[in-house]
């Protein structure tokens, strides 16, 4: 949490330090109020996405994590406050310019009937193209590279509707990669996938983050996945940030109880040394209750 400016020693420097703060990290939300119609999801919410982090947003259902991601990716205009990208209010920037900086893989993506993998991935190049620049050598190279990077190059001529769920998610990630954005936002990329494909997609995300220094922001349901893969964790409850920081620093039994209302133990993950949440057994609950 940022310190209250009223206590700061030199108040005259505040506006400057305030504007400096927004240039420190490329993406942030400042005091945003997020609402659908009249339904307010979050009020006065401030979030910083550390550059070059793999940030994961977690929280119970309806805590506003997907809504926050929508605001960060300018799909939802905050009714108050602002989302800043590179120091500018994101809504005021040209749409294609934002799309060359910040990519989003939404949950509600539709593969058009009869589209091939190569065609779909190629559509990720849209913000780099124009009416007289429809398919440059660079476009071709980036699309091939994105498909190779996500392991779908050999599927290029296959139809997307023929693929398995795991393959399809890789294709969508390839499309987002073809957009070549330094920031990439993913809304529940592992939903509806089998466990091996979930891990597969998350491993891919971790590689994309580590190898290319890309800033990744993902909303994940599974707290253990979040704790294992995130370098920075944001825990939300009822539209409010309960804790943020490295998983090793913030994931405790107390936090899990506070955020999810779940009694548990937190142990060390034998594979990675990250926190592993083990929910309390039903019997243990009974004994403590009696």
């Amino acid at each position: 949490m940022t310190p209250e400016p009223a206590d700061a020693p030199d108040m005259s420097a505040n506006p400057e330090s305030d504007s400096k703060r927004s240039t420190v990290n490329r993406l942030s939300a400042e005091n945003v109020t997020l609402a659908y119609d009249q339904r307010v999801i979050a009020e006065q919410l401030s979030v910083e996405i550390p550059d070059n982090s793999f940030t994961v947003i977690v929280g119970p259902n309806a805590c506003g994590k997907s809504t926050l991601l929508r605001a960060l990716s300018r799909m939802l205009r905050p009714s108050q406050g602002r989302v800043l990208l590179d120091g500018q209010v994101i809504q005021s920037m040209p749409a294609k310019k934002v799309a060359r900086t910040l990519g989003l893989l939404p949950q509600s993506s539709i593969a058009p009937d009869g589209i091939t993998v190569g065609d779909l991935v190629g559509r990720g190049r849209y913000p780099h193209q124009g009416i007289l620049r429809q398919w440059s050598v660079e476009d071709e190279r980036v699309v091939q590279e994105s498909m190779a990077r996500t392991g779908v190059a050999e599927l290029a001529d296959r139809y997307v509707d023929e693929l398995s769920g795991g393959q399809r998610q890789r294709v969508w990630i390839a499309m987002a990669l073809a957009q070549q954005t330094p920031l990439l936002l993913l809304d529940e990329p592992t939903t509806y996938l089998d466990i091996q494909h979930q891990i597969d997609v998350l491993d891919l995300c971790a590689e994309l983050h580590e190898e290319q220094g890309r800033t990744l922001v993902a909303v994940l349901h599974d707290l253990n996945h979040a704790a294992r893969y995130a370098t920075h964790l944001i825990a939300l409850r009822s539209g409010r940030v309960v804790a943020e920081g490295a998983p090793n620093d913030i994931v405790t039994a107390g936090l899990v109880e506070e955020v999810f209302g779940l009694r548990c133990q937190v142990i060390e993950d034998p594979e990675t040394g990250t926190p592993l949440v083990v929910p309390a057994a039903r019997r243990a609950k009974l004994t403590t209750a009696s």
Partner: peptide
């Protein structure tokens, strides 16, 4: 002239928005 924008909208409004289509 707007056919390319319309083509991205086939993939859903969110994807099209994310690709920089108004």
């Amino acid at each position: 002239a707007h056919a390319r924008g319309l083509r991205t909208m086939e993939m859903g409004d969110d994807v099209a928005n994310a690709l920089g289509v108004r």
